[in-house]
Nucleic acid binder design. Structure first.
Length: 436
DNA sequence: TCTGGGGTCCTAGGACCC
DNA sequence: TCTGGGGTCCTAGGACCC
């Protein structure tokens, strides 16, 4: 039936008819660990995990030698080191991962315009239109694998199938450094022997609910009655699982999938109830969220505070604003007010800020144009200027002259910075432009 | 053993409107 | 006087994924 093309075997990717397997799922192998090991080839054969330094950190990636010991992503680092005491722990470098991710995604974009990113290290490619130009889906998959290897020295695995779900399963079965093609006609034969946990959306809880009813394989799900399934796991999930198990997955590859929320959160090394520390963290996160909103040109309307207490219980409290915002000050005001209304319920392990209900920002934004730095929007402008002149050494009023369409340097006014003595330092609120 | 940080989607109850 | 039904928005929590 399906055919495997592992790096250790020379197999022509064209020996199976892949013409019906027009969706590719490409997944980089042990991505963070592989990127780190580009600089450390001498330890690539040893067990290596990528994890933060904190006592509370978890494994973000493990190379294949480490996985032999049972080390997996998301387990606590302390547990990983018990499983594999000789594992080498490397600190993560997210900027580097973004860099390599972008290079790989550019290769995908070269092959087809229908690329849907999934996180930092995966993507779906719709190659149904590539037939005449590059070749069969299997040939495109082989090309992508070769180019990723040659241009980044990273390896990836490819699944090719007629649906997203099966393509993703196939890439998982091809790992590491392989390719698996599942022609449409072989979809059910491929799916049905697999355990229910292989289904998208089935985690530990759902798996338990299903096995309690005697449903162990995807085939069991496919042959079970829809209504019974829905009673077990809910209407929407039941319908979805039943469809997937029968090879039905109508989702298309969507290159324009957009974010629906933006947030930041942090787990403290030591639980804290210190109100000043918590407020500072909320301010920092509010600003970070706002910068990301403005950079992406979004405004958000619902502000969410998240708290996790010492016993790991987690609550969220949200408020919907009358008007959407992309200002750190506004987000902070709201989240602080929510926090104060809540009162203290003991030491906090995690605190986080999220903004939801995103929509595109207005065309008219206030900011400034700088000959060296380019366009800066209002709040970001303060940082740009501070970096040049020192924090607080700019008379904020001068920024208000800079009204122009977002990011259009031609129509922006030139700004002359006006250093002022530190005693006249104004908080960023002064940057708020007057309404026309 | 003691659980990160970035997200998405679903459920369910209550408010509110027609 | 004792109580309908549908739709939408808001909020909280939880499962799940990478």
């Amino acid at each position: 039936m399906s055919k495997q093309d592992g790096s250790n075997r020379q197999v022509s990717a064209t020996s199976v008819d892949s013409s019906t397997a027009t969706i590719l799922h490409v997944d980089l192998d042990a991505f963070f660990a592989s990127v780190e090991l580009l600089d450390r080839p001498e330890i690539a054969h040893l067990p290596v995990v990528v994890a933060g330094r904190s006592a509370r950190s978890v494994v973000t990636a493990a190379n294949y030698p480490a996985r032999k010991f049972g080390v997996r992503s998301a387990i606590p680092l302390s547990q990983a080191l018990r499983l594999c005491p000789r594992a080498i722990v490397l600190e993560p470098h997210f900027e580097k991962y973004r860099h390599y991710s972008n290079r790989v995604m550019e290769i995908f974009d070269d092959v087809t315009p229908f690329v849907e990113r999934l996180g930092i290290d995966e993507a779906f490619l719709d190659v149904s239109g590539a037939g005449g130009v590059i070749g069969s889906p299997a040939e495109v998959g082989a090309l992508v694998r070769r180019r990723v290897q040659e241009e980044t020295r990273l390896t990836c695995s490819v699944g090719a199938a007629s649906t997203k779900f099966v393509a993703k399963l196939a890439s998982g079965r091809a790992k590491p450094d392989g390719m698996l093609v599942v022609p449409a006609a072989e979809t059910l034969a491929f799916l049905h022997p697999l355990p229910v946990s292989a289904l998208w959306g089935v985690g530990a809880t759902t798996e338990e609910a299903l096995t309690r009813r005697g449903l162990r394989t995807i085939g069991d799900i496919a042959h079970s009655e829809l209504a019974a399934l829905q009673r077990a796991v809910g209407d929407a999930s039941g319908r979805k699982l039943h469809d997937l198990a029968n090879g039905i997955d109508p989702r298309s590859v969507d290159p324009r999938a957009v974010e629906k929320s933006v947030g930041h959160e942090v787990t403290f090394e030591v639980d804290t109830a210190d109100p000043e520390l918590l407020r500072r963290e909320l301010l920092r996160q509010s600003n970070a969220v706002a910068v990301r909103l403005r950079t992406a040109g979004w405004v958000g309307r619902t502000v969410v505070l998240k708290l996790r207490y010492a016993d790991f219980s987690t609550i969220t409290r949200s408020r919907t604003l009358a008007e959407s915002t992309d200002l750190g000050r506004r987000i902070y005001e709201e989240v602080r007010s929510i926090h104060e209304a809540l009162g203290s319920h003991g030491a906090v392990r995690l605190i986080g800020v999220r903004v939801e209900q995103l929509s595109p920002g207005e065309d008219q934004q206030f900011g400034l144009w700088d000959e060296d730095e380019g366009w800066r929007e209002a709040e970001d402008a303060m940082d740009a200027v501070s970096a040049r002149f020192g924090r607080g050494l700019l008379r904020p009023a001068s920024l208000l002259k800079a009204s122009a369409p977002r990011g259009d340097p031609q129509s922006a006014h030139r700004i002359d910075y006006e250093p002022v003595p530190p005693k006249e330092l104004k908080p960023p609120r002064e940057l708020r432009p007057p309404k026309d």
